[in-house]
Design a protein around this nucleic acid. Structure first.
Lengths: 166, 166
DNA sequence: CTTAATTTTCAAAAATGACTGAAAGTTCTG
DNA sequence: CAGAACTTTCAGTCATTTTTGAAAATTAAG
């Protein structure tokens, strides 16, 4: 397998992996491309490599910057914007975990908590409340744990991790 | 808020939560409905409650059984099949984690490992291989950890968890 | 075996989500 | 300031995924 072929496969694989976890395929592909590009790339570079439109490239680059995974760079004597990705994969993971927790876990926790306001009239209601409360408790625990992870340093994580696997 | 309203909200919320994590909205809704139903339900019950077609109900019930989240039940003197969900939310979580690991993490790990077979010709290739290797290492670690979690008992998990939060 | 009840399948339709491209907006340069 | 270079927006189009519904298959009962 040569380099170009490898890169293509990586981009495709990352795109399909992302889409299985609720992340836009193209956004994941742009991210993959930047991850494996030693140099920062312009919107035009990305359009060419991935064969996507200017609008699409722009939208997904904005989104990746929102996620804190990609940064903008200006080159002296060049009016184009260049983009590069955070390369430290540990930081990438932490960033993704933190963002997804905020975007998708926290909102459902709020809803679950509001659902526990149902008046406990009878056995059926009690059963409903119990199910909701159980899910709510689990998600609160997950939230706490993810928060701890994303706010700790690499070393702490590695240590806890090794302890767990003993 | 009354019970029916609460149930509806829960089903909607669970559906939209699922879809943000790469799970079909209707499948998550069927799951939600069964989670909060004290009695097992027939395909017709589910079609009525969620206002979906017979084919759709059937497909998603099969999928939920594949995931090990829903089981079939036969009632004496009734030819219909009835379905009920695993109610223990801890087991539900473990089941989902295990399935997703198998379905989506393991396949990409294989691809990543195959990508490291690229011949290390020059500096660019070396950089590509490093990125891939880093992701591969992280995913191997995640795999190991998730495996440990899904194969341990509730008590061990709770203990490790509490230790981590200290 | 025949009929009726129920489940399964799958091609076509609908719905959803993503992308394009051109126009409008912005920023820089001379 | 005018024009050029580049970025952003978004209505319309396109692609993918999901759903439908009717027919085929299966299963049970008489």
């Amino acid at each position: 397998m040569n380099l170009d072929e490898g890169k293509q496969r990586f981009i495709q694989a990352w795109g399909s992996f992302g889409s299985k976890w609720g992340i836009n395929r193209t956004m994941a592909q742009v991210h993959a491309l930047l991850l494996i590009s030693p140099m920062s790339l312009s919107a035009d570079n990305i359009m060419d490599e991935l064969d996507i439109s200017r609008g699409n490239a722009n939208m997904n680059l904005r989104a990746l910057m929102d996620w804190g995974l990609v940064m903008k760079e200006y080159k002296p004597g060049d009016r184009k914007e260049y983009f590069y990705a955070e390369k430290d994969i540990w930081r990438v993971a932490i960033q993704i975990i933190g963002q997804r927790k905020k975007r998708e876990l926290e909102p459902i926790r709020e809803i679950l908590e509001s659902l526990m306001q149902v008046e406990p009239a009878d056995a059926e209601t009690a059963a409903f409340k119990k199910t909701v409360a159980d899910i709510s408790d689990l998600s609160a625990a997950a939230d706490k744990m993810l928060d701890k992870i994303t706010k700790s340093d690499r070393n702490w994580i590695m240590t806890s991790f090794i302890k767990m696997l003993n």
